[in-house]
Design a protein around this nucleic acid. Structure first.
Lengths: 202, 202
DNA sequence: AGACTGCACGGACAAATGTCCGTTTGAGGA
DNA sequence: TCCTCAAACGGACATTTGTCCGTGCAGTCT
């Protein structure tokens, strides 16, 4: 099935990709994500539109790439704290706080990614590796909580994972933070109180 | 403060507005919302771009107007069922089901409205009369539930209103329905189980 | 009726996203 | 080293959203 001859990746292609990311990072820092057009990024990187879009099929994809470059350490901690021992519900509560901090630090990029998944790309918002990673983490912790009899086994954990994460979606988060003036801790506390409600009763 | 001379609304302006909405309705039905450009709507309605955008400042606004035209009866029922007597928590559960049915029937328009509130218009998604209406309804019912001692008075009902509605936001809803293949009742049940968890314990 | 006035009209224009396609070039084989 | 060719390049182009501004007309006032 695999192609017989796997030609090596051309050096110029690699170099261009690097330059695009670099140019984008700088331009975003200087003029904001929304204030930076794809044309400008191409020019700054010294590549044409075709090249730009060959590497990143749309602005959202470029932002995603930039995001994953910059969050390595962040994700490390997420895995460590999440896979540890102790009550799963507690770890889940911590994780939801982690998502909020993530929102906080990456609002503009996350917002741009959301904007890019419009129209025919609606699906990409949730059907992408990053969201699936988040969801799986919630799902596993919830499953563990069921196993440890912390929460009722009747719960639809699959569906609840989406529900919980929805409470921290970037649109709502930015609105609550900047329009309603809510503090991060307050938003997180509300989701946690929901989680607390799921706990089995004696 | 009101202007001294309130000139009547010009008849041609009213007529044009009507024609735009009519053209949009037809075009959307025929080619889908995403597949219909604003230029096309203008041409079909026989008005220029300036006129089109004077009446509706962007595609999302046009969709909103179309939406509110078509949901009168729907909203009537919402108010009736929501303002009745009985346990507030029960009415809130019904209301969340209502929101889901609303999503179901108006997916394309709601999706387009979401797409239009991107970039500098991020705020409009939540800071608009329609969402505020939904949120107030949830908020009032939650307050009532606190008053009736159905749920704990410690809950942050203001924040929880957003949290609950987020679970039914159009993006996630369409994803769960069409990508994950979940049934409407299942999605609603998950949110309702969250609500059930908030109930006071004895 | 006739003139005045300001809202409304319409289409050219600006800016952004994303596609197409003829041309170039780097990597591997002879 | 030279040849070959698939992959990569680049920029013109198509499409869409949204703005600007000179022109015209509906409604009002005399």
């Amino acid at each position: 099935m695999g192609s017989e001859t796997d030609r090596a990746v051309r050096r110029d292609a690699l170099e261009n990709r690097r330059r695009i990311l670099e140019a984008a990072r700088e331009a975003f820092a200087e003029r904001g994500v929304d204030g930076t057009s794809m044309h400008r990024i191409g020019r700054a990187a010294g590549v044409g539109q075709g090249t730009l879009y060959r590497h990143f099929e749309h602005k959202g994809a470029l932002c995603s790439a930039l995001l994953s470059e910059e969050i390595e350490g962040f994700v490390q901690e997420m895995r460590r704290r999440t896979e540890g021992r102790g009550p799963a519900l507690g770890r889940l509560k911590w994780f939801l706080g982690w998502v909020a901090r993530f929102n906080e630090q990456n609002g503009p990029l996350l917002g741009a990614i959301r904007d890019a998944s419009a129209g025919g790309r609606r699906v990409e918002l949730y059907g992408n590796p990053f969201y699936e990673r988040l969801k799986n983490t919630v799902l596993e912790l919830l499953d563990e909580a069921v196993g440890g009899e912390e929460v009722s086994p009747d719960l639809d954990v699959e569906c609840l994972s989406d529900t919980l994460l929805a409470a921290l979606n970037i649109d709502l988060y930015l609105y609550q933070r900047h329009q309603l003036g809510m503090e991060r801790e307050r938003i997180v506390a509300a989701v946690r109180s929901v989680l607390e409600g799921l706990r089995v009763r004696e």
